[in-house]
Design a protein around this nucleic acid. Structure first.
Length: 451
RNA sequence: GGCACCGUGGCGGAGUGGCUACGCAGCGGCCUGCAAAGCCGUGUACACCGGUUCGAUUCCGGUCGGUGCCUCCA
């Protein structure tokens, strides 16, 4: 079990992972609001935290990964009205699509995927505690959090409360005692078709309280790692942290991890920017292997470029690993190659640096190619952390059909007759049928042309 | 304007106070009938200007440029 360091947004420094209970790690990663289908950018945190979990497990930790879905929200109400369906039907449908789309990544599911609607008791209880402590106040059915009550407010996102822009008031802002305050609970409004009863009135939760409640319920206060996209640092995570601090007198999480944005032409991919590629389309186009390699090509905190070039480069990487896989056999790898495998894992232990880790994986690959056929143990171990061990298994799809094999034999006869023109003609015909001919010491073989 | 971060060779992208990752593409070579794949070799890269230092791409200050957040956003 290596010592693992991760960058903590709150302190801005690398922090050693020190589980409350030795060997056990809880991770809470903020998931999407389900009001439409997710795009490739939304998949980055899903991938980052799924792979982090794999790495920690590889290191011997018992990991619980929680990733919530927000299924009650203004956007959902609005989208449901537009589409003429109930908000709960829409949320259920989009939640199902979210799970289906992320299943395309073949990384398994998080251990828990809580919903707002099924966590209402915990949410209401947490708000009640904040009210009891006077860290929140009710106003005409709304409940607001007293931001200035939390002396450490702003410490996660490094903002000074006194310098923060005052939120521009919507029609109900006058209910706030301080413009910085934010809603824990919103009184039900016309057009909203879901609501819950509470001592302070009928309504539904604000955005931030759900995560404080669900994370605590499933992982306990003070759990190890809280993650999400860097665009959630403020206000979402700042507010989550403040709520739990004021209700429990303890920090919600030990380490706050934030992944960088996926960029399209140098700009964040986001629904609000309108430059999105749906995840299921990206998987169809790039392939899940290529997509994972693309994500791993950059450090998780840095932006990732999603472009023709980076997609092609990721595809080339996938081909290279598959190519090496053809040479390997199942079994232990040479001891002297372990240094690359160890360096790979060391890089991951140092703020989960997948880009640096990959460099060591490539070194292992080059050495294996040079030796021509060694045991696959190390490579399989590295790829497993990245969710790519499948690259070592026989390529999917059927093998060459009878017609292709007949052509290959004919080509072999042509070659023996030194009829190069005919041999090349047949090779072209095979290429057209999707097969690359590769002449080797043991004769020719057919390799399926990669997409 | 405030906060956070970034500017690395054709592209992507790590990293480090001195020993110049890694991948893709290109070029040369080996292998091959020719290819393919693989291997070997190949690029005076670290935005600009000052400062600290024996020495800075790496530390400090400034300039310019970019990104994210400051409102829903992974």
């Amino acid at each position: 079990m290596r010592t693992i360091h991760l960058h903590d947004t709150a302190s801005g420094a690398l922090t050693e992972l020190r589980p409350r209970e030795p060997g056990k790690v809880g991770i809470y990663a903020c998931g999407p609001t389900v009001y439409n289908r997710i795009h490739v950018g939304n998949a980055r945190p899903f991938v980052v935290y799924a792979l982090l979990k794999r790495f920690l497990q590889q290191e011997g930790y018992d990991v619980t990964l929680v990733a919530n879905l927000t299924d009650v929200n203004d956007k959902i109400y609005a989208a449901a009205v537009r589409e003429g369906v109930s908000s709960s039907d829409l949320a259920r449908q989009m939640g199902d699509l979210y799970r289906a789309d992320t299943d395309l990544l073949e990384l398994g599911r998080p251990d828990h995927e809580p919903l707002v609607t099924t966590s209402m008791d915990a949410i209401i209880a947490l708000i009640a505690e904040l009210l009891r402590r006077d860290a929140a106040y009710a106003a005409e059915g709304d409940v607001y959090f007293r931001v200035r009550r939390d002396a450490r407010y702003g410490s996660l996102s490094h903002r000074d409360v006194d310098q923060m822009d005052q939120g521009e008031g919507d029609d109900r802002s006058s209910l706030k005692q301080d413009p910085l305050d934010f809603a824990l609970w919103k009184a039900t409004k016309p057009g909203e078709d879901t609501a819950w009863d509470t001592p302070w009135g009928r309504g539904r939760p604000g955005w931030h309280i759900e995560c404080s409640a669900m994370a605590e319920e499933l992982l306990g206060v003070g759990f190890e790692i809280h993650g999400g996209g860097s665009d959630l640092v403020f206000p979402h995570h700042e507010n989550e942290a403040a709520q739990t601090r004021c209700a429990r007198d303890r920090e919600l999480a030990q380490i706050w991890m934030h992944n960088g944005m996926l960029q399209l032409r140098g700009e964040k991919m986001a629904k609000s920017v309108g430059n999105v590629t749906p995840l299921h389309e990206a998987v169809a186009e790039v392939g899940r292997d290529g997509l994972l390699l693309l994500f791993c090509g950059a450090h998780y905190r840095q932006p990732v470029q999603y472009s023709e070039e980076t997609i092609e480069q990721a595809r080339a990487g996938v081909r290279r690993i598959r190519e090496t896989g053809r040479l390997l056999h199942a079994g232990p790898s040479p001891d002297d190659l372990a240094t690359h495998r160890d360096a790979f894992l060391d890089a991951l232990a140092d703020d989960f640096n997948t880009a640096a880790a990959l460099a060591h994986l490539w070194s292992w690959v080059r050495e294996a190619n040079r030796r021509g056929g060694v045991g696959d143990e190390h490579l399989r171990q590295m790829l497993a952390v990245l969710g790519l061990e499948n690259l070592l298994d026989a390529a999917g799809g059927d093998g060459p059909d009878a017609a292709a094999l007949a052509l290959l034999e004919e080509r072999q006869r042509a070659r023996e007759a030194r009829d190069w023109a005919r041999a090349d003609e047949i090779r072209d015909a095979l290429a057209a049928a999707g097969w690359t001919v590769r002449d080797g010491a043991d004769g020719a073989e057919l390799i399926r042309v990669e997409a």
